[in-house]
Design a binder for these strands. Structure first.
Lengths: 108, 108
DNA sequence: TTGACATACATAGAATATCGATGTATAATT
DNA sequence: AATTATACATCGATATTCTATGTATGTCAA
């Protein structure tokens, strides 16, 4: 509770997902590839990481989904909700503080 | 295995401990307070976080301990081993990459 | 002097997160 | 024809950290 480390680093997967969806609606498979690309290969999520996380965020109404059946393979597109945007802002603030603290501890 | 996120962010507690011990030998209670201070309050570890982690690092021979009975309350001092120093160097490299990737994903 | 708080170690159980494996199914490529 | 990529999903195992609890002593103020 008092520990921003736990609340911020451990839920970094959620934060990354919401940050991506703040840019544009995306579908699961696309998110995995985008994260890998934008991170220079540092983050390579498994489906077992991403999909449960998406479902959890949807239950919390931070994101919402819609099937796109017009593609060769059906895609489930996720978009950030207004509540999700607020939650994202909070998480980004916390994460910024934690990353700063981490830098002080490890690289100062 | 391919995911540096897991290997690096989830073991950040170990990395911080080893980094501190690279500076000087310290005892558990001291580590908790030092981490809180140097992180500006962002990291507030509980004993249930620190002590199991110290014991694990000792089993892995990354750190070693010695009791100091000369104090009012006995203290168990930990120091970084040579193997621990090598492991720390690896972890710092990985962590640097992951933090850079995180920054690209969240704040670029 | 008594009660509260800080020091200093430790462990056990619960909750959470992520991985690895597995499953289904179609599309595209070789 | 076989392999790889796309695209969804779930389950069980493992690891991490929290919360709670325990023991014991030292210090300080009311």
């Amino acid at each position: 509770m008092n520990n921003r480390n736990a609340d911020s680093l451990r839920s970094v997967t959620e934060t990354i997902i919401m940050k991506l969806l703040a840019g544009r609606p995306m579908y699961g498979y696309e998110i995995i590839r985008e994260v890998e690309e934008r991170s220079g290969g540092a983050f390579r999520w498994k489906e077992g990481t991403l999909y449960p996380c998406l479902h959890k965020l949807e239950v919390q109404h931070c994101i919402e989904s819609e099937w796109d059946m017009s593609q060769a393979k059906p895609r489930k597109y996720y978009r950030l909700t207004a509540a999700g945007a607020r939650e994202l802002a909070r998480k980004l603030e916390d994460t910024e503080v934690v990353l700063g603290a981490l830098h002080s501890l490890l690289f100062a």
